[in-house]
Computed example of a mutant assay.
Amino acid sequence: MRDDRTDGWSAVARDVLGLPDPPDHSAVRMAADRTLDRVGGPVGLVAAAAPTVAFVATDAAAGLGPAFVAVGVTALLACGVRLARRESPGAAVAGLLVAGVCAAVAALVGEARGFFLPTTVVPALFVLAYLVSLVVRRPLMGVIVNPLSGGPRHWQRHPGLRRTYVISTLVAVLLATANLVVRVVFYVADEPAVLAAVQVGSSTVFALHFAVTLVVARRVAAQPDAGTT
């Protein structure tokens, strides 16, 4: 049972902060499904994660040498599956190249954890990009989400949308920072299995954040009383 008092305080807080009503679960679910479709659906996610999982599992069972063979074979198979499903050839080849670069770095440093060095740079770059976008008053989540949400072209002049994208970008900064810190901590601790789980799980978290932002942005853009400045 929902607590009416909790709902009341939540409504007051939203009014004070000027935030829109929270999206209903069905809308978020639909947006999440569409976001999942953009990355190839469940099969696409499995294909993207397979090389990493194959590398870590084989390294734990048989050592670093066989792990290189496993990641190479799995990456080629994953690329083939994506192409057979008529996914973007660019994304399919990019996945193959990322797996190759990660394996090359692991071979260079001679440790399984080296496989995760290249992808650790990604959240660091995103943290920087998010912060710069906030400083120049063009929050990155607005740049990414607004064209897909059908929002107005000059969304920076729309108070509700600007606020929504600023908040979403701040949340993205926190997520990317946490992602970076966790990766660094477990890299230092030499825990490839945990690094693999973080790498696979972080994609789902960011996809969900994107889906929620998309739903909220569409609602805010549709509000008739949300004028421009």
Rank of each mutant, 00 (worst) to 15 (best):
M1W: 06
D3M: 04
D4K: 14
R5S: 09
R5D: 00
T6G: 11
T6L: 15
D7K: 05
W9L: 15
A11K: 07
V12T: 13
R14H: 11
L17A: 14
G18P: 03
D24P: 00
D24F: 04
H25L: 15
H25S: 14
V28E: 05
R29H: 12
A31F: 04
D33E: 13
R34K: 15
T35I: 09
R38G: 09
V39R: 04
G40V: 00
G40W: 01
G44E: 01
V46E: 00
A47Y: 01
T52A: 14
V53Y: 03
A54T: 00
A57Q: 07
D59F: 11
D59L: 00
A61T: 10
A62G: 00
L64R: 08
G65R: 12
A67S: 14
V69T: 14
T74M: 07
L76W: 09
A78E: 01
C79G: 03
C79N: 07
R82M: 10
L83I: 09
A84Y: 12
R85H: 10
S88G: 08
A91D: 13
V93E: 02
A94H: 06
G95A: 10
G100M: 02
V101D: 05
A103R: 01
V105W: 05
V109P: 01
G110Y: 11
E111D: 15
A112V: 05
R113L: 05
G114E: 02
T119A: 12
T120Q: 13
P123F: 03
A124L: 14
A124H: 06
F126H: 11
V127K: 04
L128S: 12
L128H: 08
Y130H: 14
L131R: 09
V132M: 09
V136F: 09
V136S: 07
R137K: 12
R138S: 11
L140P: 04
L140G: 05
M141Y: 04
G142P: 06
G142H: 01
V143T: 12
L148G: 03
G150L: 02
G151R: 01
G151M: 01
P152N: 04
R153M: 00
R157M: 12
T164W: 02
I167S: 09
L170I: 15
L170S: 12
L170R: 10
A172S: 14
A172M: 09
L175T: 04
L175V: 15
A176N: 15
T177V: 12
A178T: 13
V182A: 15
V185L: 15
V185A: 13
F186A: 11
F186S: 08
E191R: 15
P192G: 10
A193M: 11
A193E: 10
A196C: 10
A197S: 13
S203M: 14
A207L: 15
L208P: 03
A211V: 02
A211C: 06
V212K: 07
L214N: 02
L214T: 04
A217V: 03
A221S: 12
A221H: 06
A222T: 01
P224V: 02
T228F: 13
T228V: 13
